[in-house]
Design a protein around this nucleic acid. Structure first.
Lengths: 150, 150
DNA sequence: TATTGTTATACTCTATAACTATA
DNA sequence: TATAGTTATAGAGTATAACAATA
């Protein structure tokens, strides 16, 4: 029988170190943390990105997300544009500098993922892992579980 | 071809929500955060547990670990005992209250893992996932990568 | 000298809740 | 009234670096 607590422990310990090693490379080569890179990637990958969209994607509160966007804006990587469809909200977009940074950092990110995620596995194991985590993510998101109340 | 960045995103988003939902249940029923539960579980699962051992296990600095142990000690769940083998360090052990808390919280923890980790998958997928994350964890740990410098 | 751990300081990040503006 | 976002406050958690004690 599979020990689910062991799987959880392995998942968390692996992901912590993966997150850290990605951060070391991104910081050394581009002055970015992994979390910042993820925000920029989400923003750059959407046509319409509001604070609310980001908050739901990364499962933190709206207030915390607003402050994170403040920091990205202060760094010059994103800007808030008026949302023509709803004047209560802004659309968050990458600046030219933010786009250039993403273009430069993405190969660093993906190369490091290849080393620590793809290379240790057979092609078949990686495909199975990809399918399994997609199922698990969809399950928790469909159940709207694990979201902060704010 | 598998998109490693997509796998990473799915992994992180899933794990965040899983961590949160575990925390909601542990807090409601036992007044614990997931991180506290993990510390107690690691401490209870070892014969000799020093601050250094904990720091390596969870991949945070020794200083941060020492403060985390302070908080667990203040809550009455662990105590520092003199280490007979090395007077520079202490052995961290569960108190009776900490042991009772773990005994009560473990079924909550494992039940929630069953719901969000085991139930959505076939037995075969879960077994493959268990094997794959064990390999990935061993790989990053053997490479001594993703550890803070402190 | 090297190792083990603690502590002081500063900073990031987050939650909570009160608030403003718009729908 | 409800929704979208901002901001004030407080607290947890972490890194860094200086420190003490022991090996």
């Amino acid at each position: 029988m599979v020990d689910v607590a062991q799987v959880f422990a392995d998942l968390v310990r692996y992901e912590t170190r993966l997150y850290n090693v990605l951060g070391e490379r991104l910081r050394a080569e581009h002055g970015l943390t992994t979390a910042q890179f993820e925000f920029l990637r989400i923003i750059g990958g959407r046509d319409n990105c509001r604070v609310n969209d980001l908050a739901h994607e990364v499962a933190i509160t709206v207030g915390a997300t607003s402050k994170a966007v403040d920091r990205l804006e202060a760094a010059g990587w994103v800007s808030r544009r008026p949302n023509p469809e709803n004047r209560r909200s802004s659309l968050i977009v990458l600046t030219d500098e933010g786009r250039r940074l993403m273009d430069a950092a993405t190969p660093t990110f993906e190369n490091e993922l290849r080393i620590w995620l793809a290379d240790p596995l057979t092609g078949r194991s990686l495909e199975q892992l990809a399918g399994t985590v997609a199922v698990l993510r969809r399950t928790v998101e469909a159940a709207r579980v694990g979201m902060p109340t704010g």
